[in-house]
Amino acid sequence: MRNGIKSGIQLTWDLTKTVIPVYFFIVILEHINALDRLSGIFEPFMIYFGLPGEAALPFVLGNVLNLYPALGAIEALSLNSKQVTIIAVMLLFSHSLPIELAITKKAGAKVLPILFIRLMAALISGFILNLVL
């Protein structure tokens, strides 16, 4: 029991230490409005997934921050059910990347391969779903 509590506290502290620099990165990005600019870059590509350009914003918010702001941004758009499914699948594959990648790195995996797998899963599934749905 005591060992469990001890390793629980240790692990909580390890995970927290891991995310502090990531939160610095994210908060600074927000302060310089980088997310709006980033979604501006993605806008023209959303058409490949059958999505309107404005859907770049929830995609960027979900990937850089987490799913909750992305959900808000999706609801602010008027997407049809096919489009909601597509962006849902894309975001489920790839979201909260800075935080989750920091944790997987701490767990011992390299960042780039995991990032590549997740982004590819998101992009390819979005592309295919747009064709088949």
Binding site: L67, L71, S81, V84, T85, A88, F93, S125, L133
Partner: peptide, 16 residues
């Protein structure tokens, strides 16, 4: 979260 806003549950869950 996503099923609540109208995504297809089968595609979201099984697909993933």
């Amino acid at each position: 979260l996503f099923i609540a806003i109208g995504a297809d549950p089968y595609i979201v869950f099984l697909g993933r």
